[in-house]
Nucleic acid binder design. Structure first.
Length: 816
RNA sequence: GCCCCCGUAGCCCAAUGGCAGAGGCAAGCCCCUUAAAAGGGCUGUGGUGUGGGUUCGAGUCCCACCGGGGGCACCA
């Protein structure tokens, strides 16, 4: 009788005794190493169905590598800083740590029951001072290298969470975490200079092209948004310094009929003519009222205000009016543009709204944009452009850059959509920024020997968001003496974005108790980079971009010898229910613990794996854990009956050849399928092997045949990747000592893979007319001859065929 | 609006350009059983969203369209 709960009760305590999946650091261990990593969980209560899927998938890979004899590092930890803990603490008048660490314990126990092959000795929590110490250490190193800096400017502010956000954390104008509408605020904040690494983040994608899903790379490419063009300097009448604009279409310079400055840029206020100052102020006030969503809407009518002054086209000498508008962004390029309405739709919309001239400078063969209202941004021949006339777009771009450089009024330029990573947060449950502000010395990093700067003991109402960090209220903590001059000074009261924590945690797993630095450089050299990373697609431009950035900086610091942290990435799908994401409001949630109680760990894991390709969503309404349980019971009976009928250790060579062939074909296929991450198909093959063994027991050579034992043992080992409990019990019933997880991956015997005969299909004009049993190594000529002799085939032929295509040994197609 | 991915049986899903069906769910039938459950077995006419094309041969490659999902979307 297959009783999953009894198997769990039996085996879980035994596995817990020995940390069986510990990675081996011993230098004498020469086995090749593999590093398998699942994105670490946030401890928001117990594990849910999504965890159930991602960790089941990752565990197939890890357990497969264990079976193959690799020295495998498969660690687990918790991403345990973050807002939910803080909100829970406010609600319960408690400390965020209480909620956090209680949830971590719950999840850890659930992971153990779920039988994921972690090395439990490497567990880490990012909210431990022993961990965030090194966030601070790394911050200081970044600061020293000019990669962490503070600046004022417009930032994204989430009114719900009462903190600023990085650009990556604003999705369609809403807070990525809570969904509130994000507003813009003028604030001084800390940034990481990720833009310095924009080119490398783009160019190094070539190294991981084959291991990452294409769409993630595309999303990162779009996010970084590299474009090439030129910087062009325009004189502004009445201003000493020229103003530079960035354009991707310098070839259209002669078509610039007006000039636009971002309404919120300081430049607009500076250059506005006195008689237009009031109009500008009114316009700016109006723009400031708009939410990001409204401002970014492409449907929105163009708005703007004339600044009462003119700019001078550096090549044509033409005077063009200067406007301020909100369709020009202050933080991209130089916050100002030359407007070429004929060849840019946005400029054209603006020109038509305000009656500005439209001048065609690229002849594209399309109707005049000034009349149609449709800009012509495509290829063409330059006209009305002095020295550029007659050139193609590409030629003109090259030529005009030459001209601009000669005259000293411009040059080729590259621009990025990527902005620096805003890392400070006005919240409590995170890593304090290790900076002290001194009136005399300015920003002073906390000396390394005074790290970590630990969080003060705040709880409950102290943590209520009030727009500034709760740390500011802890005056005893804030007021310190300056490390440089000893004078009175204050600690920085912001904490770090929790994405800092997750940007390097995979390095610390190599030695989570290391005290001489964030990670043991030597051990990372041995384990890194990660061979397989598994996690959700939601981190495409968040965690995955930041971790790549950190790795490159650490590489430049000489601390890691690779430039990409994750060689292969697998994005699992979501677990949904009845076509929709599970949610409280829909009431369609499925509880992982409940599923396990009902069907057992093995059946739940098997259901996750068998449902479909790992990157596809699983609709829980479409799959059947009960059926999985049934299959496991079937497999269990085969293992039990084989175990009872024969003893381990006897040779298989005398066993039933037909069953042996099935077994070895299964080994061959499952090996390839697991290598290719085709786990659902691999399970189907295991099901077939189970059926073949069942048949052999009931209606073939019987349970005592060595081939039955071979099939059952093979099944136990393969099943251990997905259903560790039943595999372990089956292995024991087959007379082996635990653990099946280390039994070793079976090898297919090539002699048993060859077929004595195969069925060759003979087609006439593409239709199957006969089948021939032939040797698998039949020659093309022999097969063709055989096919042409066939009576069935000849019935469809009159005279000699026009053409015969032979694909020995499987197919002949005769064209009459 | 632009870009990417996916449409195979009632459902989930297989199928190096070569017989459309491996596996599972559901359904139906049979065996076992006093009966039921459990167990064992059997049953696949949808021609691969639609229309073209390439090819001896297309689910697979190309084009267009339809449907679903995702990404980007005033970034000059």
């Amino acid at each position: 009788m297959y009783d999953p709960q009894a198997l769990q009760a039996k085996w879980l305590p035994r596995w817990e005794e020995s940390n069986p999946f510990a990675a081996v650091e011993d230098a004498a261990d020469t086995r090749p190493r593999k590093y398998m990593l699942d994105m670490f969980p946030y401890p928001s209560g117990d594990l849910h169905m999504g965890h159930g899927e991602v960790f089941a998938i990752g565990d197939v890979v890890a357990r497969y590598w264990f079976q193959k004899g690799y020295n495998v590092l498969h660690p687990i930890g918790w991403d345990s800083f973050g807002l939910p803990a803080e909100n829970a603490a406010i609600k319960r008048n408690a400390h965020p740590a209480e909620w956090t660490y209680a949830n971590i314990e719950t999840q850890a126990n659930s992971f153990k029951r779920y039988a994921i092959s972690f090395d439990w000795s490497r567990r880490l929590h990012t909210s431990d001072p022993e961990y965030y110490h090194w966030n601070q250490w790394l911050f200081t190193r970044f600061y020293e290298r000019g990669l962490a800096y503070r600046k004022g400017g417009l930032v994204n502010w989430c009114p719900q969470d009462q903190t600023v956000l990085a650009n990556e954390q604003v999705v369609a104008g809403k807070c990525e975490r809570c969904g509130a509408d994000v507003v813009r605020r003028e604030l001084t904040q800390w940034y990481f200079k990720i833009t310095d690494y924009a080119d490398r983040l783009l160019d190094d994608m070539a190294r991981i092209q084959d291991g990452w899903p294409e769409r993630i790379l595309t999303m990162q490419r779009n996010w970084i948004g590299r474009s090439t063009g030129a910087d062009v300097r325009f004189e502004i009448e009445g201003r000493d310094e020229p103003v530079t604009v960035y354009t991707t279409r310098p070839d259209t310079l002669y078509g610039a009929t007006f000039f636009v400055v971002a309404a919120d840029a300081p430049l607009a206020e500076e250059i506005v003519a006195p008689e237009q100052a009031e109009a500008l102020a009114a316009y700016r006030a109006e723009v400031a009222k708009l939410s990001d969503i409204e401002r970014l809407s492409t449907e929105k009518e163009k708005t703007g205000v004339f600044l009462g002054i003119h700019a001078v086209n550096p090549v044509s000498g033409e005077r063009i009016p200067v406007w301020a508008a909100d369709y020009v962004l202050s933080d991209y390029g130089h916050g100002a543009i030359m407007a070429v309405p004929a060849h840019d739709q946005r400029d054209l919309d603006f020109a038509r709204k305000f009656g500005l001239p439209v001048k065609v400078v690229v002849h594209t063969g399309l109707a005049d944009p000034g009349e149609t209202g449709v800009a012509t941004p495509g290829e063409g021949t330059l006209v009305n452009s002095g020295p550029l006339d007659g050139l193609t777009k590409a030629e003109a771009i090259g030529k005009i850059i030459e001209v601009l450089e000669e005259r000293g009024t411009g040059r080729a330029a590259v621009n990025y959509r990527l902005r620096d990573w805003l890392l400070s947060r006005q919240r409590f449950w995170g890593t304090p920024i290790p900076i002290i502000h001194c009136v005399d010395c300015g920003e002073v990093p906390v000396p390394d020997d005074q790290l970590p700067v630990t969080l003060p003991d705040l709880r409950g109402a102290d943590l209520k968001p009030k727009g500034v960090s709760p740390l500011a209220a802890a005056t005893d903590w804030v007021n310190v003496s300056c490390p440089k001059c000893g004078g009175p000074a204050q600690r920085d009261t912001d904490t770090m974005d929790t994405f800092v924590d997750s940007s390097w945690y995979f390095l610390r797993y190599c030695d989570p108790d290391y005290t001489d630095g964030p990670f043991d450089v030597e051990k990372v050299r041995k384990w890194g980079p990660i061979d397989q990373y598994v996690g959700g697609v939601e981190h495409a431009v968040l965690h995955l971009l930041y971790a790549r950035f950190f790795t490159k900086v650490l590489h430049d610091m000489g601390m890691v010898d690779f430039v990409e942290p994750f060689e292969r990435l697998l994005n699992q799908g979501q677990v949904i229910n009845h076509g929709k994401a599970m949610s409280k409001t829909l009431g369609n949630g499925v509880d992982l613990g409940q599923q396990i109680d009902n069907y057992g760990v093995d059946a739940v894991r098997l259901t996750m794996i068998f449902a479909g390709p790992p990157e596809d969503d699983i609709d829980w309404a479409d799959v059947s854990p009960a059926a999985s349980q049934k299959f496991l019971a079937r497999a269990f009976r085969v293992m039990t009956e084989a175990g009872a009928a024969s003893a381990p250790g006897t040779g298989f060579s005398g066993g039933d050849v037909e069953l042996r062939k099935v077994t070895h074909r299964t080994i061959d296929e499952v090996t390839r399928l697991v290598d290719g991450h085709r786990f659902n198909v691999a399970v189907a093959r295991m099901m077939e092997l189970t059926s073949a063994a069942r048949k052999a027991i009931d209606a073939g050579p019987g349970a005592a045949d060595p081939a039955v034992r071979e099939a059952a043992e093979t099944l136990a080992v393969m099943l251990s990747l997905v259903a560790p409990y039943v595999a372990e019990e089956g292995w024991e019933r087959l007379g082996h000592a635990p653990s099946v997880a280390k039994a070793g991956w079976p090898q297919a015997d090539p002699a048993l893979l060859v077929q004595e005969s195969v069925t060759a299909v003979v087609q006439v004009a593409g239709k199957v007319r006969d089948r021939l049993e032939v040797s698998p190594d039949i020659s093309e000529a022999d097969l063709e001859a055989l096919a042409l002799e066939s009576e069935k085939v000849r019935a469809y032929l009159d005279g000699a065929p026009r053409k015969v295509i032979v694909r020995a040994p499987k197919l002949v197609n005769i064209v009459p």
